[in-house]
Design a binder for these strands. Structure first.
Lengths: 231, 231
DNA sequence: CAGTATCCCTTATGATACTG
DNA sequence: CAGTATCATAAGGGATACTG
């Protein structure tokens, strides 16, 4: 735990636990589903492994996170206390999406975007048992342009190389547009209608794409008329 | 603003602003009502004035706080964006009171307790136009034992010396019991019934006391069966 | 009332490499 | 996969005194 505030106020007590850097993001990840160490790292690529390890120890000691070892694998889950932070995190997400404006250029990380798609894709809504979707991000440097999302009934994987499967659909767009769609800043039909997003594939598949994903709940939160300007 | 996370996730964006030490407590204070610099200091006695000044500047730049100068007085208010953090703070308070267990001995600050009483007392519910309530905290060192809450229609003041007004009611109790009542950990009738809290004054006044205050909303949140153990 | 000015010092954190 | 080990720097923050 971090430093104390010396106040009996429950907000102060809660923040003693939660206001350390990265802590809320770890909770966010584990609200998606239980995860292994390296899966958590993928969700927070800018966090060093030693710091992640330290935070997980702190959160386990505090009782927010349970560590389940099976063999030499370790799975991290939220405890009951941790899981009850969900409404707080949802409130924060709604506030953030409403007031924190457009995603800044600097936050655009294609790997994180692809990871969200993989986390929230629903295989049962897709046309085939095994689907490969190719993404071409037109606003990224060459090395970060091409990605593939491979989905089968057991889950989804992300590759930055052609996995060799037949491609069900190709999505060509600036990453910034895809992120804006994901966050709910812009609608899908607006993006395809204007040509910002180009889809290549059978028309049934093209029309189906935006419905394959469980969009985050905050996507429908109304935006502030005058969002905060990013520092 | 603190360091960035480099993620477009709205929780990450929100926490870049909000996860710095003391920030949420400042928002909490300003959710009570607009305040001057020194009034904020009273709500966060362990924060140095330079740090408070720095945080206020950050929050103003971020657009969460508005600074209103009149003459040489400065009032801090929440902006619309700041005010919309209320549900988040309420969620945090509910979570904190539910999971963070009893107030630790170290968090017991009589001055902060008296300040809460002054902030949330409702003069219209009290018997006289001017009321003085004396508090005797039996578990505090001599210097911190005796306090007076003086309430008139314009507001309430706290003294650590006898203000000279006629005393309407005397409350004699361990501070820890009063805090527990305030947080909703223990009921008032339980505390008076067991003799933990002793009231001296006319019976009408004694019975009225617990209703003079607007108890915090989180006081009614059910507690966890097994709260987290404080680090 | 509303802050500044210093000063010191711990600690937090990022980066990187390595292990079983 | 699941972490440790090491290191150096920067920043954060507490305490205190002082100003207009």
């Amino acid at each position: 735990m971090g430093a104390t505030y010396g106040q009996f106020c429950p907000i102060a007590k809660a923040m003693e636990l939660l206001d350390e850097r990265w802590t809320m993001l770890i909770v966010r990840e584990l609200l998606y589903h239980p995860m292994h160490f390296n899966e958590l790292r993928r969700g927070m690529p800018r966090m060093s492994p030693s710091l992640l390890s330290k935070r997980l120890t702190q959160l386990e000691r505090a009782g927010l996170v349970d560590r389940h070892a099976t063999g030499n694998e370790v799975e991290y889950r939220l405890s009951a206390a941790g899981a009850e932070l969900r409404p707080v995190l949802e409130g924060l997400a709604a506030w953030g999406v409403r007031w924190m404006g457009q995603a800044g250029q600097r936050e655009l990380d294609p790997k994180l975007m692809m990871r969200q798609l993989a986390l929230f894709v629903d295989p049962t809504r897709m046309p085939d048992r095994r689907n490969a979707i190719e993404f071409q991000f037109t606003d990224m440097p060459a090395k970060l342009c091409n990605w593939w999302l491979v989905v089968d009934p057991d889950g989804a994987d992300v590759c930055d190389f052609n996995p060799g499967h037949e491609v069900t659909l190709t999505v060509r767009a600036p990453l910034v547009a895809l992120v804006d769609w994901w966050l709910g800043n812009r609608g899908w039909s607006e993006l395809t209608g204007s040509g910002t997003v180009e889809l290549t594939g059978p028309s049934v598949v093209r029309r189906g794409f935006p419905h394959w994903f469980e969009l985050p709940a905050f996507a429908t939160v109304p935006r502030a008329d005058v969002p905060l300007t990013v520092g």
